[in-house]
Computed example of a mutant assay.
Amino acid sequence: MSASTTAQRKATDQDHLQVGGHSPRVLLSRVGGQNLSLLAALTLVLCFFGVLNPDYLSWSNIEVIAEAATITGLLAVVQTVVIICGALDISVGSQAGLASVISAIAFTATASNAFLGIGTAMVVGALIGLFNGAVIVYGRVNAVIATLAGLAAYKGVAQLISDGRAQGYVLNDTLFVFLGRGRIAGLPAMVWLLLGVSACLHVLLKRTDIGRNVYALGGNDTAARLTGINLNKYLLAVYTLSGIIASLAGILLTARTGSGQPVSGSEGLELQAITAAALGGCALKGGKGGVGGTLLAVALLGALQNGLTVQGINTFWQNIAQGLLLVCAVIIQQRRNGARAVGLPA
């Protein structure tokens, strides 16, 4: 057998391995090092708390983790799109609280019409998102400052129209009961909704020209503008999308708790969403990230929070752990990107 024939056979065998997905390098490139790290961390968390408490890995507790993570997951996946675009939306938690109140109030005011209650909240969410985008684009306000103002303002509006109390009662309606407590193929309806929204956003980002333009804007907005991409229109659209998904999270909050919640259940969600997006691989400067990594990070945070709760750990420590995770995620990103230390020359 000639040397050339042997070389061809080796190359063919290597191709077969790669096609079959057996090459570690191919697997790593497809799954991503960030996602593999999150999978490893999630496995460690599940095993650790599973050893401490065997009931932790029971199917009923897994469902509890999934349901609790759904609202955060919705906000995290849309925050992923916003961050990839090179922006940030700190007001999503307050938007969810406001949508929760509006959906319950509209439901009660329209003779218990769930569709009108949900539709009203979604329209208000879209208008809020559009308003955020307009302040940033036409008011020339930094995205962090604009949405930080929204964080306070929308929370205040929710408290004002609700007098600071839970509003309405929606658990006498079939649709709200299904959204909050229904099951499809053994999984909570809320989880299916999160998976559906995530799949749509993943396709939007990875399989369409719109998604490619979003990555381009976050990576280098000047170059993107020179290629003809309208930055202002994309920012308005992305923030409108953020408002719609945030309102959907608020509707699920109403369905899960049975009433509109102005603050309880929505406070702190913006930090959780940003933490999940950063842990999932989103570069806070924009241009990098994906929905899959964010979902893994949401699962990791949900498993960790549930495990600490099951072990009776004070919620104050849970907040500390969440803050530390966010800092660690950003440090890892900065190291990978080769960012210089503050105060040192470039």
Rank of each mutant, 00 (worst) to 15 (best):
G119H: 07
G323H: 01
G218T: 05
L284P: 00
G312R: 02
L344F: 15
Q34F: 10
M122K: 05
T43S: 15
A111Y: 02
Y154D: 04
N132H: 13
L98W: 11
G219R: 07
A3S: 14
A96F: 03
L325H: 02
S94H: 08
N220F: 08
I274Q: 06
A106G: 00
I90E: 03
G258S: 04
V291S: 10
A153M: 07
N306C: 06
M122W: 01
A149L: 14
E63A: 03
Q318T: 01
T227Y: 02
I71A: 14
Y234C: 10
L74Q: 05
Q322I: 14
N142M: 10
A153L: 12
I184M: 13
V137G: 02
W59N: 09
V92W: 06
L308V: 01
G312F: 04
A297K: 08
N172C: 03
G293C: 13
V177Y: 00
L296H: 10
V92I: 05
I83E: 10
I210H: 07
G268D: 08
F176W: 11
S23P: 12
S60F: 03
G268Y: 12
I244H: 08
L205H: 07
V51G: 10
E67K: 04
T227Q: 09
L98S: 04
W192G: 00
R140A: 08
A68K: 03
V141I: 05
G228F: 01
V177W: 00
V31W: 14
A158N: 07
A104H: 10
L175I: 06
L201W: 06
L195W: 11
L205V: 06
K288Q: 15
F316R: 15
K206E: 12
G186W: 05
G281L: 08
L98Y: 05
G50H: 10
L179Q: 00
L57P: 05
C282P: 10
A96G: 09
L248I: 14
G50N: 14
N306I: 00
T294G: 08
A76Y: 08
A134W: 08
G228S: 02
I184F: 05
V203G: 09
L205M: 09
V157T: 13
G281C: 11
L201Y: 13
T227L: 05
G281H: 00
L74R: 03
K10M: 14
N319H: 13
A109Y: 15
V342N: 14
L231E: 11
G265D: 03
A199Y: 01
L205S: 04
L151K: 09
I102N: 04
T6V: 15
L38E: 01
S259M: 09
V77A: 03
A134H: 09
T80R: 12
L38R: 12
Y234S: 11
L201V: 06
V197Y: 13
D15E: 15
A87M: 13
I331E: 12
F131N: 06
V144K: 10
H202Q: 11
M1A: 13
G289D: 12
L241D: 02
L39E: 02
G186E: 05
R225G: 08
T208S: 09
G286W: 05
L27T: 13
A41M: 11
G20Y: 12
F48E: 04
I245P: 10
R181L: 00
V298P: 01
G73F: 00
S100Q: 06
I161K: 09
A299P: 02
Q261Y: 01
S29W: 13
A216H: 06
A185C: 11
V137W: 03
S60K: 10
H22R: 15
G307V: 07
L279H: 07
L253K: 03
